[in-house]
Design a protein around this nucleic acid. Structure first.
Lengths: 321, 321
DNA sequence: TTGTAAGCGTTATCAT
DNA sequence: ATGATAACGCTTACAA
């Protein structure tokens, strides 16, 4: 910057003014400075700028699992929305581990992100408290924590799930296996509760960890126990369940019905196509980013509750109904 | 930091020494400083530290498309490797757009990442030159550019592709449709070349853009032109091709054979399972991160060339061979 | 309109 | 072993 200033025959203050679009500099000096910048290939140091202004124009996003297409879509939407407001997004991948999540949150805070988007790995409000204590704007995404005091953006699947439950019962299923998420996550509990509340003793619940392997194992147990329908509460566990069904040579929906929470681009391509509860991922991501930006700008955004939709495709024997 | 210093009755210099694990401070003072840090909940400002040390302990990763599971896996591997060396990764999503890619690269450079991992959107060496001119360590991943002067990490699929081509010809296919990537990307050209070189006039090539929609369109054209086998040169275009095949009610492999470059967890679950050329994504990501770290440490890592493997599963009529 | 200079939170040099 | 102090590259009163 000093070089640029010298080159243009001005002070660094003037260079800074030109850089920041201040009204002050004359068109002439602006011209000269711009020329010098061009010639020297000067690029401002964002670190120094941030140190001075205490604003990084950066949002932190800590997600549970980058390999989960659900979160990948969300990350993409967050990024799009943030970019359109001149913000950058730094993504942290927690891998469904509470420790790694905490590590990432702290790293991002240390780097002074202007705000944080968090998909909490567990219910524990401790980490959220820590962030809030630091005074950093925070929005929870997809999942919430006990007694959350910050805005939350999520999708409500209860209606779709009860509709699905009724449908399965109507189709004659009396032993329905639920592959649920961890009981210490809000989505893990809520989805399972919404679904089973209609079912009573017809439902049998096995908890997984939102990953493929746990889906296979849960499916195996439930099938062994005589389930005639399986509902996986997240797409990765759904993938695992599907694998187990195939491995056993069972036919969908004749031998066993299957439905999955979260849609995937390839679900319609299976035979039969998979019935799902689809979350509005893009809208969730965008809404979360908007809420966070509002918070950063001193507003108090409300919680956002979008609704997930049941998409019937045939894997629950819809054709026969 | 000043507060911590006061609290502990020392200077900020000593606090810094404790923080950075210098040998100097006595166990006693160290103790006092640590206590003060704890009590005040002090966290060092990474921006200030970086400004001073000119090291951010951060790697930049600019990938073509976060929604592409291939890149998501790579990102994950890069992050794992980087973390194990105490580095953070900032991911930029270029969306297969050269402009957005350039924007991200510049943003990351402005934030003074210690090194950059780039999956170039096109062949154009301009951006690479820009980075190199800035003296920032750079490693190319998956794709290369014309006359690249920096280390490149990629997978070689030519052997697998020629084996696949021979197999298809042996199975009697004389009209083989190739859904290739953009001709201005190294992977787009190389894969298509490797595959068609064995085929001669039996191959018909249509270029897509590495995304699902272009895969459907290319498949439609090729099928209309009488192709009896389709090979998609990336998993997203493969997904599109599969959709088109299903939409037309064609049966794999009887009506048409299909193979895809890049494996996916759900490919084995289709009926028949999809034959693929599988890239070692995790190793690619890790190798790239390692090369970059080596570069940062002043070494001169060699190019890394891993090999992709042909996985026969049935979608090319292997059972009948 | 422009320049001078202080300060953002660190680290590192040089004394002590 | 510890403490002043300058410096990192920038922004922003305040003065001119």
């Amino acid at each position: 910057m000093k070089d640029v200033a010298q080159h243009a025959g001005v002070s660094t203050a003037t260079v800074s003014r030109v850089l920041n679009g201040h009204a002050a500099p004359t068109p002439e000096t602006r011209e000269r400075v711009l020329a010098a910048i061009e010639e020297l290939g000067y690029r401002p140091n964002a670190l120094a700028r941030s140190l001075r202004t205490t604003s990084t124009q950066t949002l932190g996003l800590v997600i549970s699992d980058l390999l989960n297409p659900f979160f990948a879509e969300i990350a993409r939407a967050v990024e799009d929305e943030a970019r359109s407001h001149g913000y950058c997004v730094v993504i942290g991948n927690a891998d469904e581990s509470a420790e790694q999540e905490a590590t990432y949150v702290r790293t991002l805070l240390d780097r002074r992100v202007d705000g944080l988007l968090l998909c909490p790995a567990t219910d524990d409000p401790e980490l959220v408290r820590e962030v809030s204590a630091g005074g950093v704007p925070l929005v929870l995404l997809d999942r919430t924590v006990r007694g959350a005091t910050c805005p939350v953006v999520r999708a409500d699947g209860s209606e779709a799930l009860t509709a699905l439950a009724r449908r399965l019962v109507g189709a004659g299923h009396s032993r329905i296996g639920v592959i649920a998420g961890p009981p210490d996550t809000s989505t893990g509990r809520e989805r399972s509760d919404a679904f089973t509340s209609v079912l009573g003793s017809a439902a049998q619940v096995v908890h997984g960890d939102f990953r493929q392997e746990s889906g296979s194992q849960a499916a195996a147990r439930l099938i062994d126990d005589g389930a005639t329908a399986l509902v996986a509460m997240d797409n990765l566990m759904g993938l695992g369940a599907l694998g187990e069904i195939r491995a056993r040579g069972l036919h969908i929906p004749h031998d066993i019905a299957l439905a999955v929470f979260d849609d995937q681009p390839w679900f319609p391509l299976l035979d039969p196509p998979i019935t799902v509860v689809a979350q509005p991922t893009v809208e969730m991501g965008r809404a979360a980013a908007r809420s966070l930006l509002a918070l950063i700008n001193g507003q108090q955004p409300d919680d956002v509750r979008l609704t997930a939709k049941l998409v019937l495709r045939g894997s629950c024997g819809e054709a026969e109904l």
